[in-house]
Each structure stands twice: as structure tokens, then as C-alpha cells.
């Protein structure tokens, strides 16, 4: 795995380091990190919001001494600030949930391969069941059962995503379990937990790890969809998806900016994550290393 990453990095030195999607993604991350510093307004602070300036068009002068570059929403929140803060929530939710889903999925998949028998059957039946349903349906069922809230959203996304990792990790781990170093580890009577986490897991995760960036993209889209349906993050702390949803009713009456600009920001985010993710996957895929 280490060698793979190193050779990928080496290769990268020869290829174009600055492609458009990478620059875009880096910009997004910078903006999200720096949001409190660069946003003209804190959209979570009622004292900074001027309710009578609700639904101002783009370019209107605001009471806070700055321009509403992209206008304000139905509650008077500056759209630029809403996008910047929403970006933070979208990214935190999707990165946290993808990382946790990868951890849980990989552990489950590797354990299924290591223990075999009924553990394998139980875990993989559950995985099959989940993968046979559309992700959005699994997420919907999870969120309906769990209830609202940001932590519940993260949990629902983990539930919706862990199975993909489990299936891939199990496939790789099955071929690793029979190798001599595993016999050696067992003969040394290492504790099972140590064998799984220190020996089997590191050798089985390479193909699954390349999936993480793409899955983060899926998580952003899924979170946005749930929030758009009103089942996601609470309305006073909007993510990009709920910012779009907040503006949807205004879209029909011609105040397009409330929905359109957060929507475009979301589209750019998902597109850049997916393109960079595809790139990473191609570069780390062992099958592409022959060339």
C-alpha cells in the first residue's frame, strides 16, 4: 500500500499537477476552512441578520455595511455567507460519515473473511440485502428510524455506505487469509484482534481505500438530497442542500438567486470531488500500474 502511494506520487510529478477539478476542489476546501474569516456575515447569528432585507436581489447594499453579492434568502441571510458556512457542514458531514463507513465496512468485511462460517454468512447477507436496495432508500429508511439532527444524518449516511466497503474488503481478505504470513501470525498465537487489525486489515484495504474520495462525493449528494427533502440538517444551520431547499419555494415566484447560487456551488463541489476521486482511483488502481 505504501509502495503504491509512493509510486503514485512519483508518477504525479510527471503528470499535470494542477488540473481544473483539483484547483476547484482545493478552493472549496480553503473556502470552507476560512469561512468564518471571509464570510461577510455569520448566518447562524440572529444579531447579524437584518430581517427586513429578506429576498434582496444580488448586488443590493446591506445594512451591515457590505454588498449582498448574491442577494439574501427569505430570512435575510446573505447568500455568500450561507454558501460558505453550508459548505463546511456539507464537507464535515460527508467526510466524517465516509471515514466512519470505511472503517466499519472494512472491519466487517475483513472479519467476515477471517472468521468465515456463520459470521461470514451473517455479515454478507446483510451486505447483500443493503446493496440490493438503492442507497437513497436505505438512507431514507435509516433517517426515518433515527429521527432528525446532524449526528443522525451522519449515522444514516454511515448505514447507507458501509456495505460497499465490506464487500470489497472481504473479497481481498479472502485471498489474504490463506497466505503464509497469516498462518505465521496464528502460529505465534497473536491475539485475534491484533491479527485482524495489524496484519489482515492493512493488507486488504488497498482497493477499498481508492473508493473513499468517490464515496465522499456520493455522501455530499446524499446529504444534500436528504436535506432538500427536509429530512436532513436543521434549517437554522443549513448545509448546501438545505440552502437550495430553502430557496426552492422562492424559485417559483422568480427570486431565483436564493436557490440557484447554492445549487451551483453544490454542483461544482460534487463534480470536482467526483473528477478528483476518479483520478485518484485510476492512479492507485494496481491494474493500471503496468503501464
Amino acid at each position: 500500500m505504501k509502495a503504491l502511494i509512493l509510486s503514485a506520487l512519483k508518477k504525479r510529478r510527471h503528470g499535470p499537477a494542477l488540473s481544473a477539478p483539483r484547483v476547484l476542489l482545493a478552493t472549496y476546501i480553503l473556502l470552507a476552512v476560512a469561512a468564518p474569516l471571509i464570510a461577510p456575515q455569520n448566518p447562524y447569528d440572529p444579531l447579524q441578520i437584518y430581517g427586513w432585507e429578506a429576498s434582496s436581489p444580488p448586488g443590493a447594499a446591506g445594512g451591515g455595511g457590505y454588498l449582498y453579492l448574491l442577494g439574501t434568502d427569505g430570512l435575510g441571510r446573505d447568500i455568500v455567507s450561507t454558501i460558505l458556512y453550508g459548505l463546511r457542514i456539507s464537507l464535515v458531514v460527508s467526510i466524517t460519515s465516509s471515514a466512519a463507513a470505511a472503517l466499519i465496512g472494512l472491519t466487517a468485511g475483513v472479519s467476515a473473511a477471517y472468521f468465515g462460517k456463520w459470521v461470514d454468512v451473517a455479515i454478507m447477507r446483510l451486505v447483500d440485502l443493503q446493496l440490493s436496495l438503492p442507497t437513497i432508500l436505505v438512507a431514507l429508511i435509516a433517517i426515518v428510524t433515527l429521527g432528525p439532527g446532524i449526528d443522525r444524518i451522519i449515522l444514516a449516511l454511515i448505514i447507507a455506505q458501509w456495505a460497499t466497503y465490506a464487500r470489497i474488503a472481504r473479497g481481498v481478505a479472502l485471498s489474504e487469509v490463506g497466505k503464509p504470513y497469516m498462518d505465521a501470525a496464528r502460529l505465534m498465537r497473536l491475539p485475534t484482534r491484533r491479527i485482524i487489525f495489524r496484519h489482515l486489515l492493512p493488507n486488504s484495504i488497498a482497493p477499498a481505500i481508492t473508493l473513499i474520495p468517490i464515496e465522499i462525493g456520493h455522501a455530499v449528494a446524499l446529504e444534500a438530497t436528504l436535506s432538500f427533502l427536509g429530512l436532513g440538517v436543521p434549517i437554522d444551520k443549513p448545509s448546501l442542500g438545505s440552502a437550495v431547499a430553502n430557496g426552492f419555494q422562492y424559485l417559483l415566484t422568480g427570486q431565483y438567486w436564493i436557490s440557484l447560487f447554492p445549487g451551483l456551488a453544490l454542483f461544482g463541489l460534487i463534480a470536482s470531488i467526483n473528477l478528483v476521486g476518479e483520478d485518484v482511483r485510476r492512479k492507485l488502481d494496481p491494474r493500471n500500474h503496468a503501464q
Binding site: 424559485l251 417559483l252 431565483y256 453544490l266
Partner: peptide, 22 residues
């Protein structure tokens, strides 16, 4: 096809409303 598969369906629906209806 790559972009059509990666954009969230609610976004697509909204753009259709924006362009096709509004």
C-alpha cells in the same frame, strides 16, 4: 453521462423547472 449520473436528482429537477418552466 458521467455528469448526469453524478448530479443529485433534486438538482436536475430544479434546473428542469428553472429552464423548462420559469
Amino acid at each position: 453521462s458521467v455528469s448526469a449520473l453524478s448530479i443529485p436528482s433534486f438538482w436536475l429537477a430544479m434546473m428542469l423547472i428553472l429552464v423548462g418552466a420559469l
